[in-house]
């Protein structure tokens, strides 16, 4: 019997991204630069998060024509973002045939109460999370991949570190729990006990977990890998730097060599200026607070 869109197919696809870099792109030309640099996938969107932040207003799913052109340009998987809870945008992307949907806090939420029931889709979803409870709620809704949220568009790694450390600390905590503690803990973090039990058994999230939101240098990417990320999303960090091709190249290599400081020296040399960063305290709106 032939089966499509099952959990194995969706989660297994996310496994293929492991130890790789997924890059935000806004044009087919940028997508080509990302592919040539060794990105494992591209995220097609109209503006990178730094520009979304500047522009203000309502940020929505990208134009279908733009996504289609990017899909035609590269041979690697293409992801695209939908607003939190926007079932119709997700159905459009599924029918278009994008490879992965990011139900993302970087766009303006469409539903202030519910995220999409992702089990209903043949296409896999990735969702953001700031801690273990949030990650497991998204997995309960059918997310096949998690990315820690960080604070998109800031070029500041501090929030990404905070969220990755939170998830990893909580996983370590769950691993040492007695079975009778699991129900109480599930109630405390607001996620189903079955998935908490899975975390205890496997000693990790039951799906792939990437870092996102603030990666601006090869060292930032290496840091997130050191903290236990399975891979890295780079949003504004590539195409807001002074030399995107060099920066993209360097970040791809730093994810491979994250544990080898001598390689990181070589990789970090003469790669141009990283994107301008922002202090978190000066932000008027935190994207990470969207969703629950």
């Amino acid at each position: 019997m032939v089966e499509k869109g099952t959990w194995v197919i969706k989660e297994g696809f996310a496994d293929m991204f492991k130890n790789g870099v997924i890059m935000d792109v806004t044009t087919p030309e940028q997508a080509k630069i990302a592919e040539d640099a060794g990105a494992v996938a591209v995220m097609a969107l109209e503006r990178v998060p730094a520009d979304i932040r500047k522009a203000g207003g309502v940020a929505r799913m990208a134009d279908v024509g733009l996504i289609r052109r990017i899909m035609k340009t590269v041979s690697i998987p293409v992801m695209a973002k939908v607003r939190i809870g926007h079932i119709a945008e997700a159905r459009i992307l599924e029918a278009l045939g994008v490879d992965f949907i990011d139900e993302s806090e970087v766009l303006t939420p469409a539903d202030d109460k519910f995220h999409i029931n992702k089990h209903d889709f043949k296409i896999p979803f990735v969702c953001g999370a700031r801690d273990l409870g949030e990650a497991l709620r998204r997995i309960a809704e059918g997310a096949s991949m998690i990315r820690t949220k960080g604070e998109a568009g800031t070029g500041n790694i501090v929030e990404a570190v905070k969220h990755m450390r939170a998830v990893m600390d909580e996983i370590r905590h769950v691993k040492t729990m007695a079975d009778e503690e699991l129900v109480g803990y599930s109630k405390e973090i607001g996620s189903p006990v079955e998935i908490v039990r899975m975390v205890k058994e496997r000693g990790r999230l039951p799906v792939v977990n990437f870092a996102a939101g603030g990666v601006a240098t090869p060292a930032d990417a290496a840091l997130m890998m050191m903290l236990g990320a399975d891979g890295v999303f780079v949003g504004s960090g590539i195409f807001k730097s002074s030399n995107p091709a060099k920066m993209a190249n360097a970040i791809v290599q730093s994810v491979l060599h994250y544990d080898d400081p001598e390689e990181l020296v070589r990789i970090s040399e003469d790669i141009g200026t990283a994107m301008e960063g922002q202090e978190i305290a000066t932000l008027t709106e935190k994207m990470q607070e969207r969703g629950w």
Binding site: G97, F100, P124
Partner: peptide, 15 residues
């Protein structure tokens, strides 16, 4: 031929 069956929507498992 890379991605010979199509995109992710066409991924499958079979005995």
């Amino acid at each position: 031929s890379r991605n010979g069956y199509g995109r992710q929507v066409d991924s499958f498992h079979a005995e």
